[in-house]
Structures are given as structure tokens and as C-alpha cells.
């Protein structure tokens, strides 16, 4: 039997920033947030905004395995070979934080199957305010909340609101109807997050996802420019 004493770690260590051939792998961005806040709609809008200029793919982690993947397929935002669904055993936060192995399999399989990618969006299943992505799985994470969930969510904090690289407050068009105070949400978020950015979106229009797409573009530029770390 062939014995390789080189201790190579191809795909063995989750945070490796390089492919086996040494090139820099795709940027992985996680999108998390409570049920119904518009994660899947944000992913779909991001795909439409970025698919003409970037090679991208999506991994979904819905509690019901294929629902989000099927939504994305139905909306025809990406060809089916660019979408993978991961089963989470009824524990979506486990699959993105505590045991990320199935998601890592999925992102690597996507790169194997459709060739080098620029960007992989990993969408978590709808969960609570404590769910965040492992840094071993994603390079940056977006936490999506919405105004209809209550304008006290930013004040409550929790790891998602406090530490996500980008906080998205979605469904701003509903604010007048649900009595949410956007100014208060912005102030509370700034207090919880310090310098970390917050954007307000409404996905009713095509341009609504623009601020998120712009942020992803910045992260991608920084990722591509960074020297590949020496493992």
C-alpha cells in the first residue's frame, strides 16, 4: 500500500484557504438568521445580482432538507448543479457550527463538480438568535433579521446580531405596518456592534439587495488580494 509520509492536509483542515493545487479557493460567506427573516430571498437576490460577473454556488441547510434548494431551483437563480442541500438532522445550528463536516463536503464537492468558483453562499436553516457559523466553515458571515420580527432584536443582541460581519435588517418596507422604529434599530445595532456594518434592505425591488451585494464584492476583493497563507 502506498504510504505518504508528507502529512498533506488536502481537505483535511477546514480553514485551509487553498485548493489542493495551491490556488486560492472560493470565498465562503454564511447567511444565518431567524426563520422567515428572508435568508433564502436574500440568497436568491444575491445570485441574480452576482451571477453574471462571478462563478458562484449555494449550499442550503434547511431543516427540511430540500425546501430552500427547491425554492432556488424554482426561481431559476442558478443551474441545479450549483446548488447543494445538506441534511442537518433536525439541528441546523449543529451543521454550521459544531459539526461542519457535511457542509465542508458540500462546498468542496461544488468546487469539484462545477470547477473553480469565486464565491459560495452557505445558507443556514432558520434558527434562533444564538446560531452563528463556525470560522472553520465560512470566511465571513451575514446575519439577516427583519423589522417584522420586532424592533427590539438588535437591542437583545446575541451572537448573530453582535458578531456577524454584516447585519442585514430586511423588510424595511414593512416597518410602517408593524410599527417598527428603524432609527431605533440602527442605534441599538450600532451599540451592540461597534464598527461592524449594518445595512437595511427591502427585497421588493430588484436593487434592494444592492448594499449586501456591494459588501460581498468588497469581501471578495479583499479575499482575492490576500496572499495565500502558508499552511
Amino acid at each position: 500500500m502506498h504510504l505518504d509520509h508528507g502529512h498533506t492536509h488536502h481537505g483535511a483542515i477546514s480553514a485551509d484557504a487553498r485548493r489542493p493545487d495551491g490556488t486560492r479557493r472560493a470565498l465562503r460567506v454564511g447567511l444565518g438568521g431567524p426563520v422567515g427573516s428572508g435568508k433564502t430571498a436574500t440568497v436568491a437576490a444575491l445570485c441574480r445580482a452576482l451571477r453574471d460577473t462571478l462563478s458562484l454556488a449555494v449550499v442550503t441547510n434547511d431543516i427540511y432538507t430540500r425546501e430552500d434548494a427547491e425554492f432556488l431551483l424554482r426561481e431559476a437563480v442558478l443551474p441545479p448543479e450549483r446548488i447543494r442541500a445538506v441534511e442537518t438532522g433536525a439541528c441546523p445550528h449543529t451543521a454550521i457550527r459544531d459539526d461542519i463536516s457535511a457542509n465542508l463536503e458540500a462546498v468542496e464537492e461544488l468546487e469539484d463538480a462545477v470547477g473553480p468558483l469565486d464565491l459560495i453562499l452557505v445558507e443556514s436553516g432558520g434558527d434562533n438568535l444564538t446560531a452563528t457559523f463556525s470560522r472553520g466553515l465560512v470566511d465571513a458571515q451575514v446575519f439577516v433579521i427583519d423589522v417584522a420580527g420586532g424592533d427590539d432584536i438588535p437591542r437583545k443582541g446575541g451572537p448573530g446580531v453582535t458578531t456577524a460581519d454584516l447585519l442585514v435588517v430586511n423588510k424595511t418596507d414593512l416597518a410602517p405596518y408593524v410599527g417598527s422604529d428603524l432609527g431605533r434599530m440602527a442605534r441599538d445595532a450600532a451599540e451592540q456592534r461597534g464598527e461592524l456594518p449594518v445595512v437595511f434592505t427591502s427585497l421588493r425591488s430588484e436593487e434592494g439587495v444592492g448594499p449586501v451585494a456591494a459588501w460581498v464584492g468588497e469581501r471578495l476583493a479583499a479575499w482575492t488580494a490576500a496572499p495565500a497563507p502558508t499552511a
Partner: peptide, 26 residues
């Protein structure tokens, strides 16, 4: 096989060594 790959990933990070490297290569 999928669980084998997932365990391999965790195992190589946890107990790195030639035996697991050889299995991954094979």
C-alpha cells in the same frame, strides 16, 4: 463513504499521522 470522508477530515485534524494520510491517498 460520505461519513467515511467526514470522519477522515475530523480524524486527520485530530490525530494527524501517516496512517490516516495513507488511507486518504488510497
Amino acid at each position: 463513504r460520505r461519513l467515511g470522508r467526514q470522519l477522515m477530515r475530523a480524524a486527520r485534524a485530530t490525530w494527524p499521522g501517516p496512517g490516516l494520510d495513507a488511507l486518504a491517498a488510497a
